[in-house]
């Protein structure tokens, strides 16, 4: 079982990284966002005393990378695999349905590792000085975020037509990035909408990463983690209930 899942993980990860559009979504757009948030004054209203733009940019861009990868990237790939019968074909091999899902999750974590490494290096070039405890806590949050967004991506891929999945996840990627509490905290949004946005998985992931990575952050970690965990459980429960293989 582990050997077959590892084989599927490698295959899925290579398929994602070799696809031009996926690469744009996975690394190029997040890196552009990182540079833009560092060089422009977009985040200046939320900066705490003693912090810099890059301290806020990195957690937001890491959250965006998770959405690019687990939700948009794997959602689109799985949607088309479903349309072309690839899911059913692989489910009839010894890999099976559970092995296939495990392989996809493994590929998402592998690609996420690659994204974090690249973003970390670019951020350090731009002057980021992370703390080791902060980075370790962030990795744990990233894994939880990846599980939640994989569930949401699978739900879209397993219930909508492939083209509809493509449209929905790309539209949501833009909305969540700009106004979903991903790149900038929900608190920075107008008062009437902020409490609602804070309940989105994107805001919960962004807020949790900011709580562990921004030096001297005052916002709590427990609330966002709880919201993210609820989304993860709900998304996977809905996927288990409604996912269609054909």
């Amino acid at each position: 079982m582990p050997r077959r899942v590892a084989s599927q993980t490698k295959y899925e990860a290579l398929t994602m990284l070799r696809n031009g559009e996926q690469l744009l979504l996975l690394v190029i757009l997040p890196v552009i966002a990182l540079v833009a948030l560092t060089k422009m004054d977009l985040l200046d209203t939320v900066l705490l005393p003693g912090t810099t733009r890059i301290d806020y940019a990195v957690p937001g861009v890491l959250a965006l990378s998770v959405i690019s990868n687990a939700f948009s990237g794997q959602g689109i790939q799985t949607g088309f695999d479903r349309r072309y019968g690839v899911l059913r074909q692989l489910a009839t091999t010894p890999l099976g349905r559970s092995g296939l899902v495990a392989g996809k999750l493994g590929a998402i974590l592998l690609v996420l590792g690659f994204q974090c490494l690249l973003i970390g290096v670019v951020a350090m070039v731009l002057g980021w000085h992370p703390s080791l405890p902060g980075v370790l806590a962030a990795l744990a949050v990233l894994v939880l975020g990846a599980v939640a967004f994989t569930g949401l991506g699978m739900l879209a891929a397993g219930t909508l037509r492939a083209e509809a999945t493509l449209a929905v996840v790309n539209l949501l990627w833009v909305l969540l990035a700009v106004a979903g509490g991903t790149l900038a905290p929900a608190a920075a949004l107008p008062e009437w909408v902020a409490p609602v946005v804070a309940l989105l998985p994107s805001a919960a992931l962004g807020d949790a990463l900011r709580a562990v990575l921004v030096p001297g952050a005052s916002a709590g970690l427990a609330g966002p983690l709880l919201i993210l965990a609820v989304w993860a459980v709900a998304a996977w429960a809905a996927t288990a209930r409604w996912f269609r293989w054909s």
Binding site: T15, F80, D81, Y84, G85, V86, R88, Q89, L90
Partner: peptide, 8 residues
Amino acid sequence: LQDGGLPQ
């Protein structure tokens, strides 16, 4: 499979 089951 009838529809191929092959990734495009």
